[in-house]
C-alpha cells in the first residue's frame, strides 16, 4: 500500500515522499518499512512500542491511536511529524 513519509524522515527513503510497504496492521507495516529502510521505525515508535508523541500516523486521513490498527491493501497511510520552524 502507499505510505507517505514526512519530510524529516525522507533521508531514509532516498528523499521519496510516497513509498510502498505491506502489512495487515500498522505494526506490520512499520516492520516492513524498516526492512526496506533500516532505522526508520525507531524514528516513529519508541522503545515501549508506542507511537512517538511528536509523530502522527493517519490511515486514509484519519489518525490511528494504536499500532494494532488493521489495514487494507487499498489504504493510504500517511505519517506526519511535528515541525518546529516558523
Amino acid at each position: 500500500m502507499k505510505v507517505s513519509i514526512p519530510q524529516p524522515l525522507r533521508s531514509y527513503t532516498g528523499e521519496d515522499t510516497d513509498v510502498e510497504a505491506d502489512g495487515a496492521t500498522v505494526e506490520e507495516l512499520l516492520a516492513d518499512l524498516d526492512r526496506r529502510y533500516p532505522g526508520i521505525r525507531f524514528r516513529m515508535v519508541d522503545e515501549q512500542d508506542s507511537i512517538r508523541k511528536h509523530m502522527k500516523i493517519f490511515v486514509n486521513r484519519v489518525p490511528v491511536r494504536t499500532l494494532d490498527t488493521a489495514l487494507e491493501p487499498s489504504d493510504h497511510v500517511q505519517i506526519l511529524q511535528a515541525l518546529s520552524g516558523g
Binding site: 514526512p6 519530510q7 524529516p8 506526519l80 511535528a82 515541525l83 518546529s84 520552524g85 516558523g86
Partner: peptide, 9 residues
C-alpha cells in the same frame, strides 16, 4: 502554522 524545508502545516 509551522514550516520546515518544503513542508508546512
Amino acid at each position: 502554522g509551522s514550516v520546515l524545508r518544503f513542508d508546512g502545516q
